[in-house]
Simulated scan of single mutants.
Amino acid sequence: MNIILLENDTTSDHFEAQLNPSAHRHCIEVLRPQVGHSLKVGVYGGKLGLGTVIEHTETRTVLDVTLSERPPSKEPICLVLALPRPKMLRRILSASIELGVEAIHIINSYRVEKSYWQSPYLKPDAVDRTILTALEQAGDTVPPSLRWHKGFKPFAEDILPGLARSYPNAWLGDHRVQSSLNTNRSDEPRLIAIGPEGGFIPYEIDLLQKAGLTPVNLGARIMRVETAVSALLGKLIA
């Protein structure tokens, strides 16, 4: 981790905080600070700063925290992703958070295995751990907006049109078309929808287009979903 994320119920920028067991263990095993050392910290959803170690024993670590910096700004990118294999999703979420994606919508699709939705990797505690670890890696404190949609049609008809209006560039990955993705660097909000292994079926593509998404070809090579997402985000952010 590159920062230690803290929970803080106060609005003060100066307070004392005892590290949770996971962060304390990281201090014991990796950081090995001494009293008086400063560690990079942040408050979940809030500012960044430094925590001076005022107590460090085998049982607990206590910091004197001063917050002074805003977290890094998010990239104006919305990722709409058909639920992939849950282990793969965990890696995609981590990469997307580290790259600063501002919004992620996980959706159902005809080719998504129904069993994926029951995976323990999708339980709230597991997802929260993935988000926390990625934020600490990225030196960020603010998670992306993350929403789950088990019904494809309600999402495509009721939610996606509003999203498409909010993102001037709204694309749908579709290997059947010739037009390619315009990856010129832009500060305009961008939305990209990525289908499951095997792609969206024609019925789904039709609904996504009606919602305002423009089909684009993502390249001649057939990639795994996580490879496609990382490659696309790299192009959009570079």
Rank of each mutant, 00 (worst) to 15 (best):
N108F: 05
K153S: 15
G195N: 02
V30N: 12
N184T: 10
N217S: 14
P72E: 03
N182S: 13
T11H: 04
F152W: 04
T52M: 14
Y44A: 12
S230L: 09
P154E: 11
G198P: 03
A138Q: 06
A17N: 07
C78F: 01
I194A: 00
T66E: 12
K87S: 11
A156H: 03
S180T: 15
I77L: 13
A82W: 01
T61Y: 01
I3W: 00
A138V: 02
Y167S: 01
S119W: 02
E29L: 13
L50D: 05
N108M: 10
G100C: 08
T214V: 15
R224W: 06
P33E: 04
A82L: 01
G195H: 00
P196V: 02
V53P: 05
I159N: 00
P33C: 03
I97C: 06
K87R: 13
E75S: 11
K87F: 11
V101G: 02
R224N: 12
I77A: 06
I107Y: 01
D158Q: 14
N169G: 08
W148L: 04
A95L: 14
S73R: 08
I159W: 08
P161M: 08
S119K: 03
L218M: 14
L5Y: 00
S186V: 10
T57H: 11
H14S: 13
V225N: 01
G42I: 00
S68E: 11
P86T: 05
